[in-house]
Write a protein that binds this DNA or RNA. Structure first.
Lengths: 229, 229
DNA sequence: TACAGTCTTTGACTTAAGTCAAAAAAGAAC
DNA sequence: GTTCTTTTTTGACTTAAGTCAAAGACTGTA
């Protein structure tokens, strides 16, 4: 597949004219990362941003003791690493490929020029950053104002809606990674899944599948109206 | 003071041409809020954003149980409430005046048109949102990966640098509000200040002033190399 | 100055979630 | 299939931080 075909399918670039697709194609660089490979690290100079073509990428922070907090998970069509492009500073977090991934890299200079010439591209990027601020707001709320059972319930409901999966969910990341996404550790996550199962909210099936038994109950856990026994 | 004079001093609008200042002036609306007054609430429809002229504003989330997490504190010249302008959804958090404040309101429609005509304004706004993403990244890291003493130490060092205050700090918010900013509660904050004092990191002077005695020690608390006894 | 109301601190107690260690289960490699 | 490695779960224990209650210190206003 050609670079231009990928670019045409990236929501960030929706609505642009053919000539702009050509411009973008001329500055984009295709890169390949193996599963587990580091794409950039917190503190690195950022002279461009990325878009996932295929595969998946996590954005995360590490504590000095090695605990990880996942900030985002990105899949095909999603851009990441934009912050330094516009703020002119280093990457505030690190990025790693969760699977073998193909990534497009857009160098800062060329991209900023394109934005200057192309208000729609600017507005698309503003929308992207705004949505990202919104998801961070939710993450902060979860970490600060909700307990782990509430965060987990919210994630399960999100999965169910986002993937249109009804009540039979298949986790798309390992439980270790899920713990890191929820701001906790695998042991705690495991215990809470067990409790949710025992109390009839869900049924764990194997290690990757979960069946929602009491959707309303999960909502109440999210909202704080109910807690695990 | 005239609206145009305020507008000229807003960093977000730096570098614009005189005609653009006029455009901005023509769409801006001056509003006044008393201390404690709500400016907007989470879930409200956002049909414009704000800039602080004078006074101070907090952006925050509330839990069902009434615990508050402050996301931002904004003072003169700083914009807030931009997210719905570009993402087209509701406000993800609430805003309240911490003091009697004068605020400029920029309606969405007019502003988006200006951005379309004016790439520099777009780039300025992109820089603003990017910086905000960066500060959220730090907040998430603090909440998830640091304990309260580390967060407090980071805040004290930040205050000292940001205000060029040397070792004699004056808190610019109440300790209740500081607790909410750090993602904890007043009792916990109070206890940790006491311990930092007893262990020689700081000296509390009255209820609003703090003297830094061991700057390196505070850095070590932030970095996790040291902990309170 | 005195009063009301808020802010801050302290004490006693509870609890959610983390640590450490080990077993069990699931996947990957040979 | 068997072995090795990684992931997940379970148990026993620790701990940071929260809750509840009350006292003290401030602040602003009458």
């Amino acid at each position: 597949m050609n670079i231009i075909d990928y670019i045409k399918n990236i929501p960030l670039f929706e609505g642009l004219l053919p000539e702009h697709y050509k411009d973008l194609t001329s500055i984009a660089v295709k890169r390949v990362f193996k599963k587990g490979e580091r794409i950039f690290s917190e503190g690195d100079e950022g002279n461009g941003f990325y878009v996932v073509n295929s595969g998946r990428v996590k954005i995360f922070k590490l504590s000095p003791e090695g605990k990880e907090q996942i900030l985002h998970l990105f899949g095909p069509g999603e851009p990441f690493g934009e912050v330094p492009v516009f703020s002119g500073e280093d990457f505030p977090a690190s990025a790693e490929a969760l699977e073998d991934s193909q990534i497009l890299f857009f160098p800062r200079k060329g991209f900023v020029e394109l934005i200057g010439k192309n208000p729609l591209l600017a507005l698309n990027m503003l929308a992207t950053l705004s949505r990202r601020l919104r998801t961070f707001t939710v993450l902060i709320e979860n970490l600060s104002l909700k307990e782990v059972p509430g965060r987990l319930a919210a994630y399960l409901l999100y999965l169910s809606e986002q993937k249109n999966a009804g009540n039979n969910l298949m986790l798309d990341i390992s439980k270790n990674q899920l713990a890191s996404l929820l701001g906790t550790i695998p042991e705690t996550l495991s215990r809470i899944l067990t409790r949710m199962d025992k109390e009839g909210f869900i049924k764990s099936v194997g290690s990757r599948n979960i069946k929602i038994l009491d959707r309303d109950g999960l909502y109440e856990l999210v909202g704080g109206e109910r807690r695990l026994a």
